[in-house]
């Protein structure tokens, strides 16, 4: 694991494609996530951001291309090796994906108890600690997920993702459904994971405030490809019309609600 060169990207996607039936979602994604940095992927709704994360995790098998973690090709990893690789990851799902048959604290402690055979008592302490970190009161730990609001569920999902201090953390829309203050708490938490714990973060968000707060680098996905990637400082003068339109949230520009056709005409002109 630590044999990787200092500047090997933590995650590297090369020409990754994925279709669902006739629908081409990813059409050759090339993306490098540097180790110990926070990369944020932006892009329109339905452009395949969540699918991309699931491909990296192997939850969805990519059709083509290769996915390297720490320089090691994991595209076709199966069985025990894949289970082992998962130990490096933490993932916050867009829909939180909490286990509804378990209490909140058991959800947060799940990876520690079941995945890493930690003692229940110790895992519960860590779980409560993480709940506090995401701005929830310890009593919440004894409720069931169905008894929480959407934003609370999201934060529990976040606590679960970071509970085992993973090397790589994926955040799928971490601040959606949160009030501005709580969103900022979460932004800071994500920053801390990267800054203090040295994790590599790959986040997806539509919230530009959040992008500016948590990103070291930004990549934009459009039409199944990464069309721009650069440091956060360059986001405002990226020189890319799509990025400009996206960060300013304008309805008019190269991206229209009707999608691809107009876009290609405009690029051509």
């Amino acid at each position: 694991m630590s044999t990787a060169q200092p500047n090997t990207p933590k995650i590297s996607l090369q020409g990754v494609t994925k279709s669902f039936g006739p629908k081409k979602v990813l059409q050759g994604i090339d993306l490098d996530v540097p180790a110990g940095k926070s990369l944020v992927v932006i892009g329109g709704s339905g452009t395949g951001k969540s699918v991309m994360l699931k491909c990296i995790l192997g939850l969805i098998e990519a059709d083509q291309g290769s996915i390297l973690i720490d320089g090691q090709d994991t595209t076709h990893l199966k069985g025990h090796d894949r289970d082992e690789m998962m130990g490096k990851f933490g993932m916050l799902f867009q829909g939180a994906a909490l286990f509804d048959s378990l209490k909140v604290w058991e959800n947060v402690a799940f990876g520690l108890v079941q995945g890493r055979q930690m003692k229940k008592r110790q895992a519960q302490e860590i779980a409560i600690e993480k709940l506090i970190a995401v701005g929830l009161r310890p009593e919440v730990g004894h409720l069931y997920p169905a008894e929480l609001s959407g934003g609370m569920q999201k934060r529990v999902g976040l606590a679960r993702a970071i509970a085992a201090n993973p090397e790589i953390i994926f955040f799928d829309e971490p601040t959606t459904g949160l009030d501005p203050i709580m969103a900022d708490v979460i932004n800071e938490l994500i920053r801390d994971c990267v800054g203090k714990l040295g994790a590599t973060a790959l986040s997806i968000t539509h919230d530009m405030g959040s992008v500016r707060k948590i990103a070291d680098e930004v990549a934009m996905i459009h039409d199944g490809k990464i069309i721009w990637q650069g440091p956060i400082e360059k986001l405002d003068n990226s020189g890319n019309a799509y990025v400009d339109q996206f960060i300013h949230g304008r309805a008019s520009g190269p991206v229209t609600k009707h999608g691809t056709h107009t876009i290609q005409k405009q690029t051509a002109s």
Partner: peptide, 12 residues
């Protein structure tokens, strides 16, 4: 509800 995916990401 992606709970099965979540299991996998928690090494279970």
């Amino acid at each position: 509800t992606e709970q099965i995916d979540a299991l996998t990401t928690l090494s279970v």
